[in-house]
Amino acid sequence: MPHAPDTLLDLPSSTTQTVPEGPALEAASREPAFRHSRAQRLADRWAHLVFLACGLLVVALIGGILYFLAARGVGAFIPLAGNTDKVLTLREVFLSTNWDPNAGKFGILPFIAGSLTVTGLALLIAAPTGILASIFIAKIAPNWMKTLMRQVMDLLVGIPSVVYGIFGLMVVLPWVSGKWLSDSPAAGFAVSAAILAVMIVPTIVSLATDAFESLPLSLDEGSQALGSTRWQAIWHVLIPAARARLLTATVLGLGRAIGEAMAIQMVIGNNPQWIALMRQSTDQTPVLRLLFTPAATLTTELVQELPNTAAGSTWNNVLFAMGLLLYLMTMLIILATRRLSQRREA
């Protein structure tokens, strides 16, 4: 019997293999109630495209964000139609610490340095504590404590940036300045980084816990069967075995930290001239000065100044260039985690 085309059978291609042959086929064609309608078949074909379109929309978004930020950002360096101000050199923007928009100075190095400093400090707190907490959850805690810790982490991620910010502003800043700095203002990197650390620690904990829990129990047993203590097994076997994934967790924590805006903006002090201020003041040790000089980052400066600038002005364009820089960092971070996971699989 010749192979019947789909249209005749009114069945989708995916089921043609199970089509009954011979008399059964005739029976099937006498039973129109069991056939897919033309509309159903069409829907099945079009659905694929609709779902694909949703996926493609995400891809388009990634490109669209890049395009629009770049279109505005490059306006600071290239004369475009609609530009109202002068153009700058890359050097003037990326390698200068002089930020004085009213005087035409647009060095964004203080913001880059600020972002890196606050992120670095936050990671310094969050990465070790987060990884240790994940060891606790994966290897030491009894079940009820595991559940409790997961709950705690879930709640910590769920708290909004601005609530972290208001807590810093109303509780942490006064406490620190009263207790540690004899009432000079405490705004700056220290408090920002501490708050940021609490915000990113759940990300690190949850990824690192997964890393430890996915290691086979046989590694743990192998080490302890040789007479290692539990901690020696963790330190000498489990941590090295999970290294790539722990690094991924830290890098993703870094990604969250570098993009955070509102919470830090509320406690960092928003001072674009922080590098100069830090250099001038001499009343404290350099470390304390770094930690407690009111400062600014890429994100806080965007929040602070974007509403005050006119579209098309150099000032405005430089701010978009800063946004573009943040976006490129995000992409870099995601690509880095990709490389890490490829190395893991290899």
Partner: peptide, 28 residues
């Protein structure tokens, strides 16, 4: 793999960057 890369990137994009995009495209 590519789609997943895009989803991860979008998930990791700072909200301030999404804000800039929204401001350019929808607001302006």
């Amino acid at each position: 793999r590519f789609l997943r890369l895009c989803i991860e990137t979008l998930a990791a994009t700072p909200s301030i960057v999404l804000a800039l995009f929204g401001m350019i495209v929808f607001v302006q």
